[in-house]
Design a protein around this nucleic acid. Sequence first.
DNA 1: CTTTTCAGTGTACAAACGTACACTCAAACC
DNA 2: GGTTTGAGTGTACGTTTGTACACTGAAAAG
Lengths: 206, 206
Amino acid sequence: MTETRGERKERTRRAILDAALQLCEDSSLVALSLRQVAKEVGIVPTAFYRHFDSIEALGLELVDESFASLRAMLLDVRRSDPDFDDIIDSSIGILVEHVHQQRAHFRFIVRERAAGPPRVREAINAAIEQFEKELATDLVRLTGTTTWSPEDLQILSGLIVTAMVGLAEAILRNPDRPDAEKAIVEGARVQLRMVLVGALNWRSKR
Amino acid sequence: MTETRGERKERTRRAILDAALQLCEDSSLVALSLRQVAKEVGIVPTAFYRHFDSIEALGLELVDESFASLRAMLLDVRRSDPDFDDIIDSSIGILVEHVHQQRAHFRFIVRERAAGPPRVREAINAAIEQFEKELATDLVRLTGTTTWSPEDLQILSGLIVTAMVGLAEAILRNPDRPDAEKAIVEGARVQLRMVLVGALNWRSKR
DNA sequence: CTTTTCAGTGTACAAACGTACACTCAAACC
DNA sequence: GGTTTGAGTGTACGTTTGTACACTGAAAAG
């Protein structure tokens, strides 16, 4: 069969990305060698350079890819019913589902956020900050500007994101333990309700 | 001068721990080589084995050491005035101070928690869970068992610990930026107050 | 004083590392 | 149909890696 040149290139590029994501699963990008990746993919080491300048550049690509997963998740959240009282349950359900479906990507983000090459860390944190800001503007739409100052909404947003990242980390930390995971998820639900109660009784700029 | 044999051993052992802590600062334990450490300390590579079986064993020792820093911090927190309304401010102040004084240890914990060798990760997470439980029993002492179920206190405790770990991570992420750090710390204060408002209006087992 | 112990040395080796360089050969191009 | 392009090959290099083994020499033990 005739496979176009660009298609073939894209195929090994994908294979490199997948192999890297898998190989650094229980260590880190900073401990991943170009030769391991090449061997896993089935190409000669020097061929790696046809696709990426360095492992770090590969890592930045994986960041983009992983955050594409995250954006897809947020689309799901926003698309879900705007029914107010179980917005928490549905959002958490969506998060849990995406973490399971994109395990490797989420693992990659939480791991390299703390331990990756500096530029990778920066890229991940910039993206997470972006999410916080987007959530803050979403909250403005939900609450109006009467009782909440923009600064406080930003701070509340940060708290929620921190809790959700914590939930994702806890899930990833307990693979193949459905009972433990259930308790974790239930705990996160309660946590968000506590935060919600706090938010409903909050008055900015007192 | 006469330096006892055990003293000399302890001294190079310390040098190894310090060198390892410094060398993995901008990568990770999983990317740290025995030879790097030996060179930094000024001993021959094989001499490393007189003190540790492996880099992983060294890592477990660093975990213990780092959590000793953390326990010292918690002692400070409990020792601080039990004046109720600024318990938040004083606790955060203590946390910030300790993060600055023990930068390397805190960095080590947050990094290796996500990216370290499996056993190191487990040790760190076990210690953090322990803290959550201790905080929960502290909260029992503060609130009594009337309005709060033990389960909810445990969950609240988890939320607070997550937020505090998040604060530590944010501080470590912005070194040498006093203005940014000030905003981060102020945000954390507000977050904890929000959680406190939620807690005060919470009723368990509704 | 003699013997034992053991932290640290020195040499040695096979394996893995990143990368330079010259190459092939089929798709893409004119 | 002849030429160009570029993904992938193969060899080769100097480094760095973990670890094995035999050693030294001063402190500790008898």
